[in-house]
Design a protein around this nucleic acid. Structure first.
Length: 227
DNA sequence: TTCAGGAGGCTTT
DNA sequence: AAAGCCCCCTGAA
């Protein structure tokens, strides 16, 4: 009860009154949330370089400020270093991103997978009819991409239906609403899929799509919706 | 000036 | 499974 107010006063309301008011807050933000998701919806239909850039964004975000990651990707695209820059040049644009050395390696590793000749080709691996299998493929083949970030990527290009992006904010909310008892210290594949399944059931019971519940939790914690 | 915190994941033990 | 490592910038105290 002694929780601080955030930008929207949502935290307080949600804690004191449980899931009922989560639905109320949802109604307030529903339009905004749907609008935001709509912006992601068709990204997977844009060109390969754009889709690849989204993947790279998600390789940068762990433990970092998403805004700075966005700036870094924007600059790497503009300069085209993202598509053909060397290690040192790429690294020079990650000044504000956490763990820049590791992440430079992830970016170049991902590029090596998807660059054929002079072209980036990533869209052909996106099986729209089985996005969960695509996620498995990404986790297995793209170094630096775990379940959380693979889900984040698919959501950001409009293929994240029914997927959870289990970051600390979401996990805190899931605990708050007693969907999970505790926040696990390390999330294995097994626990990730279990928690994802529980979140799906919870969202079903509220009649709120998982992707929308994700953004709702996210905005409750941070006060805004980025990506 | 210190110090927590930011949409984790990989490697080693 | 658990601990160790990556390693940057910002804003509050």
């Amino acid at each position: 009860m002694a929780e601080r107010y955030n930008y929207n006063n949502c935290k307080e309301i949600c804690i004191s009154n449980g899931a009922k008011d989560l639905i109320k807050v949802y109604k307030d933000k529903k339009h905004h949330i749907k609008q935001r998701l709509k912006e992601f919806e068709n990204i997977h239909k844009s060109d390969d370089e754009n889709v690849f850039s989204e993947l790279c964004f998600c390789l940068l975000t762990p433990q970092s400020k998403a805004v700075y990651c966005g700036q870094a990707i924007k600059e790497l695209k503009r300069s085209r270093l993202l598509f053909n820059g060397g290690k040192r040049a790429v690294r020079s644009k990650l000044q504000k991103v956490r763990f820049p050395n590791n992440k430079t390696g992830y970016l170049i590793g991902a590029r090596n997978i998807f660059k054929h000749g002079k072209r980036i080709e990533i869209k052909k691996i996106l099986d729209i009819n089985d996005t969960f299998r695509v996620r498995e493929w990404l986790v297995k083949n793209v170094k630096g991409l775990g379940y959380k970030e693979a889900s984040h990527f698919l959501r950001n290009i409009g293929l994240g239906r029914n997927m959870s992006i289990l970051d600390v904010h979401i996990l805190k909310n899931l605990k708050r609403y007693k969907v999970i008892k505790e926040i696990p210290r390390a999330i294995t594949k097994k626990t990730y899929l279990e928690i994802e399944s529980k979140m799906r059931k919870f969202s079903d019971s509220l009649n709120i799509p998982v992707e929308e519940l994700d953004l709702l939790f996210w905005s409750n914690q941070t006060g805004f919706i980025f990506k």
